[in-house]
Simulated assay, not measured.
Amino acid sequence: MKRAALIFIFFLGIISFFSDFTHEGARSIYGPYLNILGASAFVVALAAGLGEFIGQALRIFTGIIADKTKKYWTMMILGYSLNLLAIPLLAFVQPSIWWVAVVLILVERIGKAVRAPAKSALTSFTAPHLGAGKAFAINEALDQFGAFLGPLVVFFMISSQSGDALSRYQMSFLLLGIFAIVTLIILFVARLKYPNPDQFEAPKLKPKELTKDKQFWIYMLAISFLAMGFIDYPILAFHMDSSGLVNVIYIPLFYAIAMGVDAIAALIFGHLFDKKGLYSLIFAISIALFSTPVIFLFGDIYFIILGIVLWGIGMGAQESILKAVIANLVSKEKRATGYGIFSSVFGLFWFIGSMIIGFAYERSILFIVIFSVTMEVLSIITLFVLMSHQKKQLNEA
């Protein structure tokens, strides 16, 4: 069974590889592309924040649907189709209708909302055989390897083509459409090979009710602070472009670097999580919180690179450890719902944080730094509270 679970995780990882190659390659140029189309800094922040909010908030509903129906594969096929096929359509947007690009970016995020809880639940079902940290780390590493190569290919596409910037960006979106089709083909093959992956994990006799699970809600508070303070890449990309610190053609390359760091960090921190638990998450946040002051306060390319590396570490921890914690806190029967709530809470506070940061950008860079670091510190404090509660519960058992 362990071997079958491992092969299944690699199957999901390959799907994630091609999926992230596609949508992270696209996301690496969302900020500059909207800028070229004529959107303002606030619109870029709105697209990033609202996209994450919608893409995360809907997961509470898609998670419940996945748990109720057990149609995990159906949710994934529908979600991946929306998530990926919106990207090549961006190639046809013109400056006169720049708002269509914003709509397509939101559709891409909605697609991820449809498939994400089901995919996370399927990944978590292998935890009894592989360990929650390892299961999510393997998936995240392959995921981020694609997220590393996608922006890299986009960078070479943009830098090697002749013509104006708009046409180069649009050609990149069309190329990414090929990888979107490849992803969907592999997804259908996986569905045929593993029709009932939920059988990897046996059901619990007395699953906890999420509404009465104090530890789960303390954890939700911790990730709320984390989400508010963690700045999305389109905002970082807009800053690098508008400040003149980085030539616009190198911005996808910087994103590729971040995704490479993300993949390595996910493996390291996923392994640490199975051994050290929440200490590994606290350690990762403690490192990543320095990314904001390094990127925004030092007008130097080397500090930008350092900040991007720190940001990548934070992303790696988010995508592996945050989900692994849910696998340990929530029973199998409510796992997709748990992931849906988790994602909705995370998305809501990411949206709030993005709006605050977008509004403050043209007013006070220092405020952005103070706000971001403060939120991350509050997240760390809340995680210590959760650990204290867990220890108290173990002592009472």
Rank of each mutant, 00 (worst) to 15 (best):
Leu310His: 09
Ala360Arg: 04
Val330Ile: 14
Phe351Cys: 11
Thr292Val: 15
Leu281Glu: 03
Tyr302Arg: 14
Ile285Cys: 09
Gly338Trp: 02
Phe290Thr: 10
Leu310Cys: 11
Leu348Phe: 15
Leu306His: 07
Ala327Asn: 07
Ile304Pro: 02
Leu281Cys: 00
Phe342Val: 08
Tyr302Asn: 14
Tyr361Asn: 06
Arg363Ile: 12
Leu306Asn: 06
Arg335Ile: 14
Ile370Trp: 01
Val294Asn: 03
Phe359Gly: 00
Phe296Glu: 03
Leu366Trp: 08
Ile365Leu: 09
Pro293Ser: 07
Gly277Asn: 07
Lys276Ala: 09
Val309His: 11
Gly299Cys: 00
Ile301Pro: 05
Ile352Ser: 12
Asp274Lys: 10
Gly340Ser: 07
Val294Ile: 15
Val330His: 04
Leu306Asp: 02
Ser344Trp: 01
Phe303Met: 14
Ser354Trp: 01
Phe346Ile: 00
Glu362Ile: 10
Gly314Glu: 05
Arg335Ser: 13
Leu306Tyr: 05
Gly353Phe: 01
Phe342Gly: 03
Ile313Met: 14
Gly307Glu: 02
Thr292Leu: 01
Phe367Leu: 05
Phe342His: 14
Ile305Phe: 13
Ala336Asn: 07
Leu278Asp: 03
Ser331Lys: 01
Phe351Ser: 08
Phe371Trp: 07
Phe303Cys: 00
Met355Phe: 12
Met315Pro: 00
Met315Leu: 15
Ile370Met: 10
Val345Met: 13
Gly358Ala: 10
Glu319Asp: 13
Val373Asn: 06
Glu319Ile: 01
Gly353Pro: 05
Ala284Arg: 08
Asp300His: 15
Gly307Asp: 02
Phe303Glu: 00
Ala284Ile: 10
Val330Asn: 05
Glu333Pro: 09
Ile341Met: 14
Val325Ser: 01
Gly353Gln: 05
Ile313Pro: 02
Leu329Pro: 08
Ala324Arg: 09
Ala288Gly: 11
Ala284Tyr: 05
Ser364Lys: 05
Ile295Thr: 09
Ser286Met: 13
Tyr279Lys: 14
Lys275Ser: 09
Trp350Cys: 00
Trp311Gln: 08
Phe367Glu: 00
Phe342Tyr: 15
Gly340Ala: 08
Ile370Lys: 04
Leu329Ala: 03
Gly358Val: 13
Ala284Lys: 07
Leu322Lys: 04
Ile282Cys: 07
Ile368Met: 12
Ile285Asn: 03
Leu289Ala: 04
Phe283Lys: 05
Ile304Thr: 15
Ile326Ala: 07
Phe346His: 09
Glu319Leu: 12
Phe283Gly: 08
Gly312Thr: 12
Glu362Asp: 15
Lys275Glu: 04
Ala324Asn: 06
Ala324Glu: 07
Thr337Met: 12
Phe346Val: 05
Ala324Gln: 08
Ile282Gly: 11
Gly316Lys: 12
Ser331Val: 01
Leu310Lys: 10
Gln318Leu: 14
Ile313Cys: 11
